[in-house]
Design a protein around this nucleic acid. Structure first.
Lengths: 352, 352
DNA sequence: TGAAATAACGATAACGCTAATGTATGTTAG
DNA sequence: CTAACATACATTAGCGTTATCGTTATTTCA
């Protein structure tokens, strides 16, 4: 009277071994296609395992192999299409390599990020892809110290030994700025977030350079419309549109009459469009507008918004590839930093 | 000459035990706040573990406890804001209960879904929250058979023993339809996806009932604008707007002149707006429009779109709560089905 | 004061798997 | 014909925890 059909307990290697009259070790070798098993025996074992519904216990396997075949992804917010698309692509690439993805969300909170990192450390992950929050956390050092491969995306952390993949913010802003300059704009305003963060700084820098290259003056007091940073990251980011609406309205109230806007996020353009509509300022006749991100709704704005297609797929693919190489020890030892240039998407808002 | 500072190897319970002159067992009890340890000893052990940077090995822990404290989330696509918000909320709730989230994406593909399910089964998850693809897969039966707690969201699977949480599609469409009827609409058209799927069917049914309750006739040939199902789910869903644009343009070309539209997705409204603009039909003066989903961009459409706020947070919270209860064995045994009624968001597109 | 209860810890086993050896067979070469 | 060598399997050990039971010293109460 065996407990073969005991209903609840999952069959183990032992159970399979008992049925075929061999030992667990041999069954293990057979199922994992390792040498030292008679082909006929191997076939028998596989058939029997299948029949019993044997599923290897990952916990035991992870313990002995020291790996879970899981990578962690820490991002601030998957409501942001850039990050959701990034996570999607990482999941796809990792899945093809037989790795699963553990998702950890920080919501731009340094505390939550620290918790996420600790969770990741405790979870015995094989590697980590992360978009850090704006505030630098020293918990990342623990990741490095624990020897867990780490690849950063989107935002860099100063003085940390980790590969980095990102869209090229400076090249991006230069593309959009140059696009309106080519159309004859002489007074361009940049609408962007008011934060001393590296990505924003790079955009500012690129903006300035494009203006100077065109022989135009750059005055931060008149050519920048800075949007206050958001208060919460739990909700979808339409606050960005509201804030951009306010900031650009103020700008016109102060008597400014620019002939072009380049913005750091498509949602800013959404708010800007409202400002312009309210004041009877026509796009593109009176002002040119360039967005950032190619959000799905931009094609249906009136007029359709010219914008920037961010290379999230490339970023995700390269970051995942690099991480897997590090995990498998096939990566070159030096730290790599890769900024991928985005692509212009020209529509009606920037052409006349 | 010990290997105490060997640099690579993580310290284990044994290592901590050796340092404090006790056994691994006692150290385990001390660190996990289980009784049977002298308070002074406990404090010493904790301090020493901290000093050594001891992190418990989850693999060993999972093996002996038979649990990873991880739940799986299978959804079709996190580019869809509804699902990304849902996943966010699940991650938040699960995190508070000490559970991490493994993300698996199916992209509406039955094959990928099957793979995801197998991956989940092999990964020794404690439970599963899933939004199944349109095509019924029998792999779900394996989940049930393996005794892994399963909670479905958004889409039901006929004849499966699993809890189900969803927005109330029928109540939702009745809310939006009644809203335009109250404003005096006499000829309403429903724009929705052309799929024999339960959520769509429920919406169709609700739409018909609302019309009949208002004493209006319902003719599927004139009052339905069906949008073909998408071909790919990898990219963000702006194809929905394109298709809705085409379908509604056709409708006007055939001479129809409805006085209101209710749509099954905000992106449909985006395409519909274009159709109306091109033909000089004014919203809300000539036609009323009601959206679905309260996507962040709807507030900034011109005119701002009335829509439905989907209770994704409630769905996620209740589903997660239910799953955790099942995992911890504190759930009532019977299967529960819960449809949460969404909330109207009235803006300019449906009022005059 | 002595028997029983309690506290604080140790010894041992177990979770299910894989890796390193060990041991019979059968096969080949000189 | 025997040494050398594969082949196909079994034996043993170990991954790092937690759980169950013992053991010893200390406290409690009649």
């Amino acid at each position: 009277m065996t407990d073969e059909i005991d209903g609840r307990r999952q069959p183990t290697l032992q159970d399979v071994a008992k049925v075929v009259g061999l030992t667990a070790n041999t069954v293990s070798r057979a199922l994992n296609d390792r040498p030292g098993v008679n082909p006929a025996t191997r076939a028998l074992i596989k058939a029997e395992a299948e029949r019993l519904g044997y599923v290897p216990n990952v916990h035991a396997r992870s313990l002995v192999l020291g790996s879970r075949r899981t990578i962690g992804v820490i991002v601030t917010n998957i409501s942001n299409p850039f990050f959701s698309d990034l996570v999607s692509e990482v999941e796809l690439q990792a899945g093809e390599a037989g790795y699963t993805v553990m998702l950890l969300l920080s919501y731009e909170s340094a505390n939550r990020e620290r918790e996420a990192i600790n969770m990741a450390l405790r979870s015995g992950l094989d590697g980590l892809i992360a978009a850090p929050v704006r505030e630098r956390s020293n918990a990342w050092d623990n990741v490095i110290r624990a020897g867990i491969p780490l690849v950063l995306v989107s935002r860099e952390i100063p003085q940390i030994e980790a590969d980095f993949f990102s869209t090229d913010n400076e090249a991006g802003i230069r593309l959009t700025t140059d696009a309106v300059l080519r159309m004859g704009a002489k007074d361009v305003v940049l609408v962007d977030e008011d934060m001393p963060f590296s990505t924003i700084r790079l955009r500012l820098e690129g903006f300035r350079r494009s203006l100077e290259a065109a022989g135009l003056p750059f005055d931060p007091r008149t050519q920048l419309a800075l949007v206050p940073p958001p208060r919460s990251f739990r909700v979808a980011q339409s606050w960005q549109a509201d804030d951009a609406y306010r900031v650009t309205s103020d700008l016109f109230d102060r008597g400014r009459r620019p002939d072009a806007f380049v913005v750091g996020d498509d949602y800013y353009a959404l708010g800007l469009y409202r400002t312009l509509r309210e004041r009877g300022i026509r796009v593109p006749e009176d002002v040119l507008v360039m967005g950032w991100g190619n959000h799905p709704f931009t094609r249906f704005m009136e007029p359709p918004l010219s914008t920037l297609l961010l290379p999230f797929q490339d970023v995700a693919r390269q970051a995942t590839r690099r991480l897997l190489d590090r995990i498998q020890g096939t990566a070159s030892p030096e730290i790599v930093t890769h900024r991928i240039v985005p692509e212009l998407v020209i529509r009606a808002s920037s052409t006349r």
